[in-house]
């Protein structure tokens, strides 16, 4: 049996290494452009590590069992009558419970930190309408633009509104998303960390033009932002 355990562990390690390579060699997430997404990516990697371990464990057990104990379909002998094992059952109830609690606590902490507005954030209203976005800057005499421009390093607090159906504001590089719901106001925070141009995507089916409801987000230096906003007024 010791040989069997070694083989099982070997299969598990091979699967874990292969899965890890898939997780690391491809860039699964956009390069983060916000502090909030940096924190979200930490949670993502925590979940990924746990997932790889569990996936490797289960698949290794299945592959090993089938490889080791497969018989011909004509075989009519029974296996040993093992009905269960209370200790093992307690273990595989308790450990997953512990793991998901850890994920839950880490997620709750990240969620709370991503929702903490600092003092005097830049206020931006994102207004969704079939099928375009409009961005209003109430701190700058309600300057309005179809393009989202944000100063780098400064926290922006978005307030979403919709004039017709539900839309969803999403910039993949910011990792932040929030629905714009008619009748209520919703909010989300984004603190851009690098300059560049990113797509704004509508993520909630909003009708015939849903796929084309995109806008451009531009993160620029503080000075460039001041120049731009002056032009918009």
């Amino acid at each position: 049996m010791r040989k069997g355990i070694v083989q099982l562990v070997a299969i598990g390690v091979v699967i874990a290494v292969a899965t890890t390579l898939v997780a690391v060699l491809f860039q699964w997430l956009p390069t983060s452009a916000s502090e909030e997404f940096d924190r979200i990516q930490d949670v993502y990697w925590l979940v990924t590590i746990i997932s790889i371990a569990i996936f490797a464990l289960v698949t290794a057990l299945i592959v090993f069992s089938v490889w080791k104990w497969r018989v011909s379909p004509d075989d009519d002998e029974d296996g040993p009558p093992i009905h269960g094992n209370t200790t093992i059952e307690i273990v595989w109830t308790a450990i997953p419970a512990l793991l998901v609690l850890v994920i839950g606590i880490v997620s709750a902490v990240v969620l709370a930190r991503n929702g903490e507005a600092g003092t005097r954030p830049l206020r931006v209203e994102a207004v969704g309408q079939q099928f375009a976005w409009r961005f209003v800057y109430p701190d700058y005499e309600n300057a309005t633009s179809g393009e989202l421009v944000l100063p780098v390093g400064k926290e922006a607090q978005f307030t979403m509104r919709s004039v017709d159906v539900i839309h969803s504001f999403w910039v993949p590089e910011f990792g932040q998303k929030m629905d714009a719901v008619p009748g209520i106001e919703t909010t989300i925070l984004v603190t851009p960390t690098r300059t560049g141009e990113f797509p704004v995507v509508c993520a909630e089916l909003c009708g015939l033009g849903h796929a084309t409801m995109r806008a451009k987000a531009r993160v620029v230096s503080e000075a460039e932002f001041e120049d731009w906003i002056a032009e918009q007024r």
């Binding site: 997404f37 979940v47 997932s51 994920i103 969620l111 932040q176 993520a203």
Partner: peptide, 14 residues
């Protein structure tokens, strides 16, 4: 599990 975690879901939802 990814989708259950609120911060990851905010990115991955929809």
């Amino acid at each position: 599990i990814y989708l259950g975690s609120v911060p990851v879901d905010i990115h991955a939802s929809d």
